[in-house]
Amino acid sequence: MGGQDQLFHVIHKVPQGHSPYVKAKHAQLVEKDPEAAIVLFWRAINAGDRVESALKDMAVVMKQLNRCEEAIEAIKSFRGRCSKQAQESLDNVLIDLYKKCGRADEQIELLKRKLRLIYQGEIFNGKRTKTARSHGKKFQVSVQQEISRLLGNLGWVYMQKSNYLTAEVVYRKAQMIDRDANKACNLGLCLIKQGRYDDARNVLDEILKRKVPGSEDIRARNRAAELLMEIRAFEPPSSEIAEILGLDDDFVNELEPLMNEWAPVRSKRLPIFEEISSFRDQLAC
Rank of each mutant, 00 (worst) to 15 (best):
G152I: 10
R149Q: 13
L110M: 15
K138N: 03
L117T: 07
K138Q: 03
Q144L: 03
G155L: 13
L150T: 07
V170K: 05
K114P: 01
L117W: 06
V169E: 13
R133G: 00
E106I: 00
R133E: 05
L110I: 13
S148R: 04
Y171I: 11
K137D: 08
T131P: 00
T129W: 02
W156E: 14
S142I: 03
Y119C: 06
N153Y: 10
L154E: 10
R128D: 14
K130T: 08
R116D: 08
Q107F: 01
L150C: 02
Q140S: 11
L115K: 00
Q140L: 12
N153P: 04
V141D: 09
G136T: 06
E109P: 00
T166G: 12
S162Y: 02
T129S: 03
E168R: 14
N163K: 04
K127W: 01
F139E: 10
T166M: 14
G136L: 05
S142Y: 00
K127E: 12
V141A: 10
R116T: 11
E122M: 14
R116L: 10
R113I: 14
N125K: 05
Y164E: 02
Y164K: 02
K130Y: 01
S142F: 04
I118P: 00
Y119I: 06
Q160G: 09
Q144C: 06
A132Y: 00
S162T: 10
V169M: 11
H135S: 09
V170S: 13
E168H: 15
I123L: 15
S142Q: 09
I108K: 03
S162N: 07
E168T: 13
L151G: 11
Y164F: 12
T166N: 12
V169F: 09
N163A: 12
E168I: 09
K112L: 15
I108H: 03
S142E: 04
K112H: 13
T166K: 07
Y164G: 02
M159S: 11
N153S: 14
G126Y: 07
K127P: 00
Q107N: 09
R113W: 12
Y171H: 12
L115A: 03
F139W: 05
E106K: 06
R133A: 01
Y171M: 15
Q144S: 08
L165Q: 09
E146H: 00
K127T: 10
Q120A: 12
